[in-house]
Structures are given as C-alpha cells and as structure tokens.
Design a protein around this nucleic acid. Structure first.
Lengths: 249, 249
DNA sequence: CGAAAATTTGACGACTCTCAAGTCGAGTGG
DNA sequence: CCACTCGACTTGAGAGTCGTCAAATTTTCG
C-alpha cells in the first residue's frame, strides 16, 4: 500500500511508518491501530506531554506538528530527538515503565493516544503490528546513532544543516514536504539545544549557512533552492532512515 | 531469579539482561534462549563481525569481552556504542534487514549466535522472550540518548569519565566488576573515537583525570579509589540503565 | 635487540563559550 | 497610528576547549 494513500485513509495513524509499510504489514493491521487511536488532542507550544520518570497509561502518536524529546542537565534543557507526524512519542515507556526523557511540543501540535492495555492486546493478536512497533523503536535507535556520529564529526553549522536534511527526508516519507521551504517552529535556541551549542553560536552557524548560500533560516523555517548542497554539506545520507523497506519479519 | 545465579546457570546467554530479569521473564524463557545459542566463537582484536549494510542470518550475543559499534565518516572510524557481555550485538539487523553500523571486537572476545529463523519462531511461542528482546533494544536507545546528552553538555574528560562510569554499572549488572579497577582493551584512540575528539586530546583528557585525582587510565584500564567522585565529575546517574526492573508487560 | 604501536608533549590556529550590548519583530495598550 | 514591551535575533571581545602538525618517549612484541 502506498504511503500517501495510507495517510489519507487513516486520519490519526496513517502517517505511522508511512512509506515503510509496503511489506510486512497489512491494511488490516493499520486499521486495527486506527480503531484504537483516540480523538486527536491539541498541544500548545512548549506543553509537556510526559515528564521524565513519569509512568504513563497510553502511547501517543504525533498527528500534526513537531515534538521534542528533551532532558535536563544542570538547569539546561537539551534536546535528544525530534519527532514528526506518524512517530510514536513515548513507546519506550510501555516496556520500560518510565521514560528517560520528556516529551515536549514544539509549536502547536496534535496527538492521538492509545491505551497500553488495548495496544498490548492488539499486538498479541496481530504479530505484524507488534513487529511494526518494534521496527519504529529500532528506527529511533538508528536516528540516535546518526546524531551521535554527527556530534563526533560535524561542527555546529553542519549539525543544523543535518537536522533540516533529516527532517526534510522524514517529512517526505509521510508526504509532507514542500519544495523550497521546510517550515518548523524551532527557535535558534531550540536548534542550539539540539546541537549542544550556545544560542549565540547557533546564530552564527545559521549565519554561516546563509553566507555559504546553502539556505536561509528565518524563525525556524529553512528556505533553500538546493537541498543537494545542504545534504552534501551536512554529510547526509538517508540510508539510516530505512525509507525503502518494511520490517524484515 | 537473581542475576548472578542466572549468569552461572546459563553459560552462553546468562548475562542477557542479567539483573533486569527478576520480573517478566521466566527461567524457561531464558533456558529456551540458551538452547538456541550456538557454541561460543572467538573474535580477535579488531575483527569485524558485521559490516554496515550487510545482511545477516543470525543474531549474536556477546559472551566475553567488549565489542564496539562503529561507523565510518570520511575515512575516520567513529564509535557509536559499546557492548558488554550479555548484550545482543546486531538485533536491529533482524528487523531492519541490514545494519547501520559495524560490529567490531575490541580486544579478544567471544560471542554466541542464534539463527534468526529459530529465534523468531521461539519469540512467537514465548511472548515474554519477545518482550525481553524488545526491552534490550529499548535499552540501547536509552543509552544512545544519554550519549547524545553527554556530547551536548560534557567536555572530553567528562565524557571519558562517563564512559567508564557507565561500563562500571553495566558490568555490575552482570556481576563482573572488581572494586578498584575496570579493565578494558581500549586504546586512547578508541576513547577518542567514542568521544569525538582527536587522540591527542583524548590523551590530555586522560591526563586531566589523573591530575584531578579521579583515577588513572593505563592501557584502557581505569584504576580508581573513588567511583563516586568519577560519577559526580561525569554527571553520571544510572537511572537510564533501568537496572532495577524488568519489562513492564 | 628492533620494529611497530601507543602514549606524551609543545606550538599555533580554529571552534565555541561567556559576558555584554545592541537590533529586529510581533503584539499590546493608548 | 504610535509608543511600548518582550522575546528572538545579532554583533563584538576575550577566554577556554579542541584540532592539527611535528616530534619525542614509552610500551609491546616478534
């Protein structure tokens, strides 16, 4: 089933692993997930959905907007991950009992929630769905590893470019890209917290991307004529997003 | 069942999630895993078990030694994770079809392997085992997130201290710590590749830990009288290792 | 011993931090 | 409409962390 078709058919969960569900998961599995998903709930900018250490009774899927995975360290907020629509936001909490990060909305967002108990029961009846959930957390892990590599090899401007390149591809997988712009609600302080640099330095990095002619970031929105150049500058290679395939088993 | 008892009972797989199997997994599940595990295989220092992009037919568990998860970038080797005995080394490959990192032995190591097909079949019959495997990959994710936080907030010396503090706790969970020393086969270049700094700077960071009186690293072995001081210096908090609990479902 | 690898040291430049100050932009109240 | 305000963004200066080049020293191992 094509990703965009899935997205249109299932309003709440259609973006879940969209583009990666061609094999391995049947339409019935996704319909079962959609049937469990609650009425979408709005989150305000900065609203904290789950605090670290908190136990939760349901799993949340992002429907619209962006969500950050944050941790605190000595009073500073750090960002350890970004979610786009279709992502499960707090699936580890279902298995690990608590979360090691906070889930915070970046800009207005909408989520849908599924109780742990019915989700587990449905996973038991639908092994393909269970595998899809595992797949999605493995994908989180692959993205984490790429971020680690980026910290080890890229400077601030390249890290910012990589973040936008990654989001561009992840949004493409769910059919939500526009050609010349990637709109996000991120402030430069958000970008700094993703890159582990000071807001002042994030500003200089944004300026460098502009000076290099790669793109212009204004209030979180990246405007560019040349995604290829941005990807080359950020050493971006989409293989780690496993965009071309479904689960193997 | 106590972790150390498990370790002694099952020679090959006993360290798998040892210390975290008190609940949620029965002895029979671990015995089933042990029954699938092949005769331990020796790996030489630097030997590559799985290359990135390679498809594999079996999952590997580390029995003895240390293993690195590495990626290449512009000719430089980066380390995105470290495994200790009991860890699955390449479980994502079973679901994702290929691996986004290489699995490389650090020093001599021993592994045991389990074919994907029998493992999947056993997971189907033993849901608790399937959950344990998922749990272990979620734990990988939590460790990845902590590494990301470390890159965002710690300097080179603190990162090295954090690596040793983390390994000390992970080894404690499988009953393999000694009080005053943590022996590893890591060179300073290995530490540099884990921290994203140059080997020369890693050397200075090691020297700083010595000058601060926190500990002495000689040929990968950390000798210290004061683990608490190292943990405080590295902002280490073991909560993210989920050492006190089993899977929730 | 001799070769190879690992570790150590010094010098200089690049990246990034902090402190401080100033500019821009979107709302708000008059 | 304008002045005001607040947050976001921008700029400059000096200091700390880290990279690179080069070279020396120590350790390991055949």
């Amino acid at each position: 089933m094509d990703g965009s078709v899935v997205s249109e058919t299932f309003a709440r969960t259609g973006a879940f692993l969209a583009g990666r569900l061609r094999d391995g998961i049947a339409g019935g599995d996704l319909a079962a997930l959609e049937a469990l998903a609650g009425e979408p709930v709005a989150l305000d900018d900065g609203q904290c959905l789950v605090a670290p250490g908190q136990t939760v009774q349901c799993a949340s899927i992002l429907v619209d907007g962006f969500v950050l995975r944050t941790v605190q360290n000595e009073g500073r907020r750090l960002i350890v991950g970004v979610n786009v629509p279709g992502d499960f936001l707090d699936l580890p909490a279902m298995m690990l009992q608590r979360l090691d990060y906070a889930v915070v909305a970046a800009g207005p967002a909408r989520i849908t929630q599924i109780g742990h108990a019915p989700l587990i029961e449905t996973m038991r009846r639908r092994p393909a769905l269970a595998r899809a959930l595992w797949f999605s957390t493995l994908l989180d892990g692959a993205i984490h590893r790429r971020w680690i590599r980026n910290f080890e090899t890229l400077d601030a401007a390249q890290r910012i470019a990589h973040i936008y390149a990654e989001l561009h591809h992840r949004l493409a997988l769910i059919g939500r890209t526009s050609q010349r712009a990637l709109r996000t609600p991120f402030t430069q302080t958000d970008l700094a917290d993703m890159c582990g640099v000071s807001p002042i330095h994030a500003n200089r990095a944004v300026a460098r991307l502009r000076e290099l002619g790669l793109g212009e970031i204004r209030r979180g929105d990246l405007y560019t004529e040349n995604w290829r150049a941005i990807e080359a500058y950020a050493r971006f290679d989409p293989a780690y997003l496993y965009g071309e395939q479904g689960a193997a088993i």
